[in-house]
Write a protein that binds this DNA or RNA. Sequence first.
DNA 1: GTGAAAGCGCTAACAG
DNA 2: CTGTTAGCGCTTTCAC
Lengths: 337, 337
Amino acid sequence: MVKITDVARHAGVSPSTVSYALSGNRSISQATRQRIEESIKALGYRPHAGARALASSRSNVVALMMPLRSGIHMPVQMQFAASVVTMARTHDHDVLLLTQEEGEDGLRRVAGTALVDGLIVMDVQLDDARTPLLRTLGLPSVLIGFPAEADGLTCIDLDFTATGEACVRHLAQLGHRCVALLGSPPEVYARGTGFARRTAAGFTAAAHRYGMSSTVLPCEPGRAAARETADRLLRELPGLTGVVVHNEPALGPLLEAFQHSGMRIPDDLSVVAVCPDELAENAAVPLSSVAIPAAEVGERAVELLMAKLNDGEVPDATLLPPRLTRRASTAPRDASE
Amino acid sequence: MVKITDVARHAGVSPSTVSYALSGNRSISQATRQRIEESIKALGYRPHAGARALASSRSNVVALMMPLRSGIHMPVQMQFAASVVTMARTHDHDVLLLTQEEGEDGLRRVAGTALVDGLIVMDVQLDDARTPLLRTLGLPSVLIGFPAEADGLTCIDLDFTATGEACVRHLAQLGHRCVALLGSPPEVYARGTGFARRTAAGFTAAAHRYGMSSTVLPCEPGRAAARETADRLLRELPGLTGVVVHNEPALGPLLEAFQHSGMRIPDDLSVVAVCPDELAENAAVPLSSVAIPAAEVGERAVELLMAKLNDGEVPDATLLPPRLTRRASTAPRDASE
DNA sequence: GTGAAAGCGCTAACAG
DNA sequence: CTGTTAGCGCTTTCAC
């Protein structure tokens, strides 16, 4: 194995000079830098990762903890993982893959052994057991998603307030005057300051601004609950022509329920979903939707983490702007109605 | 940070004894082992990964290089990645994630810096630019899939010969007497000793054994080619009641072509596919199929790699037995025909 | 069965 | 702008 002393000898300088040339931590004359680079190339030198980590207390590896078994919507996960790895590489870091199942022990292990310099934790739940640990671990971390208690944690996710607004704007521009948001089950709203609440706030505010009449209705998952919710909605708001669904498990059942009630989509009812593109594309009627921008989330997460690693200040919350993709489920309101 | 000397002092032994207690590389009296374990727990000691890697020239990390963008069949990839990570952990190893795009440079980098002890390389092509490198890298590696020239490389994949046989056996048991294999495009067969050839061999041998009449037909991808192949097949083999398709891109077009020709599946024609479960499940008629056993491939790949890391001897080729899942596309041959 | 001590290859003061 | 030197925390001979 060729080591830094070999390079130093070959270039006629001291090992530290080679080290500095590599790290850029002090200025080197053009001439010696040149010779060093040539020697490195000539000898095929590569710094030993372990030695470097030991001496510098920096491994240049970040951990990515993600759910690897969740049967659902892997394309989003994959896209995310790809962008994390790619972006990490541009910052000269590698990515260690941890499964969600490793949980807190996994985080403690990679942090405690100094295997990694920082953590990216996906799929953070409102009430996530890992968040207290992340606060005390002493390693920089970035969470994908917002826990109920996000103070002191760096979190990133889609901007759900803006998402609610964007959905309403889309419907308003199509001429709809009476709209509803079908959101998460009641307990999610009750539970605290989750994304559910933010979507609803954005939705309601925008509806007011556009002078539309609006309703927000929670919805339990499952066929029966969906049927009931849809019926109630159509009964209580006879003028309803547009709905926004922000409830992935209830989405399919709700669509069925509407169609069962004789509402054709988009002829009688325009539907906007907040869900992965994958799902929206493959629905019976392809759904106009706002998706989680996985690739951008991954990139930004890495950038935030890198900033923290270089003791940069980063915002606690990063909210990414929604992008609404128009598909077949929304249409102009029929003026004759 | 608590280090090995702290543990040693706390336990009243020397650092080397703690090290040996941890590694099990020499016998320790029950009593001191006990004390050491208690001290470790009491102090919350975790060995520094970098220091350990430097001193032992073992990082206890393996690299997994996989395609992270291939829009196609991520569930298989994910399942595979999950099983690799999980199995690696049971061998006290972590997994560094590399994208396919990093290619040879990526492998050279993680090997050259001693970041990893071994490599698992997915999605190996018949003519894969990485294989010559893997031969000379001096790090143990395991390939998923067989390159044309596999000598001296440890490869693992589905047993395609047995797969061809299993498909025929299934059709034979349903009473079919005249079957065809629709395989890869001609150039794949011409190119060498790929899986295509093995499936065909197994298919033909089994058909003979069962006294069935059989044909093997290559098939180009694309609508037009599929139509043509299907037509030709039905024209030349009027008695055909069963086909095996081992050609993922052509699968959809072929099914359409058969149906366009008035063949109902499975009433007139039984179809067995060699493709991911995902694809088989979501076809218009759910397809009886043989899939790549992703989880098992991942587990075995890690086991092979671990064996190589401990200078164990491992077979060059590991072939996993096929499992045929029966779905709606195969039925008993109509006796009245 | 246990200890002492010499590195593993690199970085980062400190010194000029 | 460059060199000297002292570790980083662990493993592993070698010695008892």
